[in-house]
């Protein structure tokens, strides 16, 4: 487990007043563990700093007022019941929401000192640096090679394409599986392989953030396992934000967890997603500071 940054106590969300340090390997964290001192195994540098982020669909508020710094070289998990806006929020981080007609994002998301939603920012440039892996594997109906090479070609990367393809496949630990059938159609691969191909495809354009929207929800446990291992390897070089329905998965892989919920105080038809708590994963699962988080992680609702 990489412990490349010094252990630091960091206060992450407003409800938190104190923070204790602990050191623990991520795969040991489980929702059933007794509360124990948590250690922030991460940097103090945020890759995204979100302030007052609202998402509206056709003028209707869908996600309200998210404040969250997302740390570099960490895995941040977004959890919560369906409809809580965690995926919507994830898609704000690389401006995929721009593609939905009528979607509007307010507030600021600062990435490397630039507000992603500033007027002069080009969403295409944003997506070159912030890659995304989707819920269902979505390889292109082309060869394995062409799947990987597409990204580097369209962003105009220089270099030997064969090398770029090989290195991306190696990083996604897929090389050994597919090195003999690079010309085969990706549709012939298994679901787990397809998803790792999609990860390799995203890595090929050398992003520095990887957004993953329930990447394992369509996969079997073994494939899920491999992807989780891969994520833990990748966080040395990338910052990862993952949306997951699977609380165990969040507990296994993430450093930080953000819990979203559905706020229905405005009535059934005015459901709004809100960030309840954002903290060190172990703390979220063992000592949440908000009652709603506790009810969710202990399985009382959601």
């Amino acid at each position: 487990m990489p412990e490349k940054t010094d252990t630091a106590e960091s206060q992450i969300t407003k409800p938190m007043d104190e923070q204790s340090a602990s050191s623990s390997a991520h795969h040991e964290v489980s929702p059933h563990l007794e509360p124990k001192p948590a250690e922030a195994a991460a940097s103090t540098e945020a890759i995204f700093d979100c302030k007052g982020v609202d998402v509206l669909y056709s003028g209707k508020l869908a996600v309200a007022d998210v404040d969250a710094p997302i740390m570099k070289n960490e895995i941040t998990a977004l959890i919560g019941p369906s409809g809580c806006g965690k995926s919507t929020f994830l898609r704000c981080l690389n401006r995929m929401n721009d593609l939905i007609p009528g979607a509007e994002v307010r507030g600021s998301i600062v990435y490397h000192g630039q507000d992603l939603y500033a007027k002069d920012v080009d969403p295409v440039q944003v997506r070159k640096h912030i890659g995304m892996v989707f819920q269902k594997p979505n390889p292109f109906p082309k060869s394995v090679y062409e799947n990987i090479a597409f990204g580097p070609k369209v962003v105009g990367m220089k270099g030997d394409m064969d090398e770029i393809v090989e290195s991306a496949l190696r990083r996604a630990s897929l090389w050994d599986d597919v090195k003999d059938r690079l010309k085969d159609n990706a549709f012939g691969m298994s679901g787990g392989q397809q998803q790792r191909l999609c990860i390799a495809r995203a890595l090929a354009v050398q992003p520095d953030v990887l957004l993953m929207d329930e990447p394992c929800s369509a996969l079997d446990p073994i494939s899920t396992n491999r992807i989780e291992d891969l994520m833990l390897e990748l966080k040395e070089d990338f910052s990862i934000v993952i949306v997951t329905h699977n609380m165990q998965q969040a507990a296994r892989v993430s450093d930080k967890t953000a819990f979203f919920t559905v706020d229905m105080t405005g009535g059934e038809s005015n459901r709004v997603g809100r960030l309840v708590e954002h903290d060190i994963t172990e703390k979220i699962f063992t000592q949440p500071s908000d009652k709603r988080t506790e009810e969710y992680v202990t399985g009382k609702f959601g």
Binding site: M96, G131, F140
Partner: peptide, 19 residues
């Protein structure tokens, strides 16, 4: 999902459509 996949890699709209 094919369009999303291409756009998320930094392809422009027309690159996504054309390729």
């Amino acid at each position: 999902s094919i369009r999303d996949g291409a756009l998320a890699l930094g392809a422009t709209k027309w690159q996504t459509i054309w390729k």
